[in-house]
Each structure stands twice: as C-alpha cells, then as structure tokens.
C-alpha cells in the first residue's frame, strides 16, 4: 500500500482530462450569435424582449389557431392586426432565415423543423434529379396585414 503518489497523480490526470473541454472553452468561447436585426418594419408584432423569450410559443399558438380554428388574424398587445403567418408575416421582415433564425438556433443547438415543410422565399430545393428549384417570392400581398 505505497501507491499513494500514483493514485493521486492518476486522479489529477483523470480530473484534468474530464474537465478538459471546460478549460478549452474558458480560453476560447464560441462566437456569439449575430442575428440580422435590420428589418423592414422597426416594430415586431410584439416587443423585442417578449419575442426573444416567447417567439416559439407565439408561433405554436399561431399554427394551432390557423390550422385548427381557421383564425388567421393576430391582434397584438397594441391592438394592431397581423396575418398569422410564419412565411408571410415573420419572413416579410426577417427576410433571410439564415441570417436571422438560424443564427441563434445553431448557437443553442436547437433544430426547429418549421422549414422542412414551410418555404422561405429564395430558398433552394435540391431534387433527386440533381437540379434545383428556387422558391419564388410570394405573389399575393400580405392580405391580413394592416
């Protein structure tokens, strides 16, 4: 029983290895997300702080009320009406999802599946034939938007 030194060194080595990612992270932190905040309209449907924390809940309410209740108009806290539409209302201002949505989602490693069905204008779909389809801009005006 004279292996105390070996045990201590081994433990220290083990501890250092296990915590290595933290030490590396302390030295160089991941780049902060930089969403593009230059929007056409200066005011979002709700205040920025609320949207930052609750946009996913709002979008969930929107999709349920549109699909299940056919209720397509959202009246915000200031009494202004908007069409409940991810692509026609949200993307109308935050035009490029790569520069807005994806920035934070990638940073916090969440993968919402909105765009596996919904189409963003300018988005490119890769076909089995190898060719590409580009999603055009919306042809109809934002009818619910006032």
């Amino acid at each position: 029983m004279h292996d105390t030194l070996k045990v201590i060194v081994g433990l220290a080595l083990f501890f250092a290895l296990v915590t290595l990612p933290f030490w590396l992270g302390a030295v160089r932190s991941a780049p902060a997300p930089a969403p593009d905040l230059t929007a056409k309209d200066t005011q979002c449907v709700e205040p920025v702080a609320y949207m930052r924390a609750n946009h996913m809940k709002l979008l969930d309410q929107w999709r349920n009320s549109v699909v299940r209740d056919g209720d397509r108009v959202y009246v915000n806290s200031a009494g202004k009406s908007f069409q409940k539409s991810l692509t026609k209302t949200c993307l109308n201002c935050h035009a490029q999802k790569e520069k807005f949505c994806d920035q934070c989602h990638q940073s916090v490693a969440v993968e919402p599946y909105c765009f596996s069905c919904h189409l963003a204008p300018g988005q490119s779909l890769v076909l089995t034939s190898g060719s590409r389809l580009t999603v055009a801009d919306f042809s109809t005006p934002m009818d619910g938007r006032q």
Binding site: T87, P121, L125, V126, T128, L133, V135, A136, D137, F138
Partner: peptide
C-alpha cells in the same frame, strides 16, 4: 425532392 415546380 420530387417536385416539378414549387408554389411558395
């Protein structure tokens, strides 16, 4: 991957 055209 099997669309001929796409309507946004």
């Amino acid at each position: 991957e099997f669309l001929k055209q796409v309507d946004a």
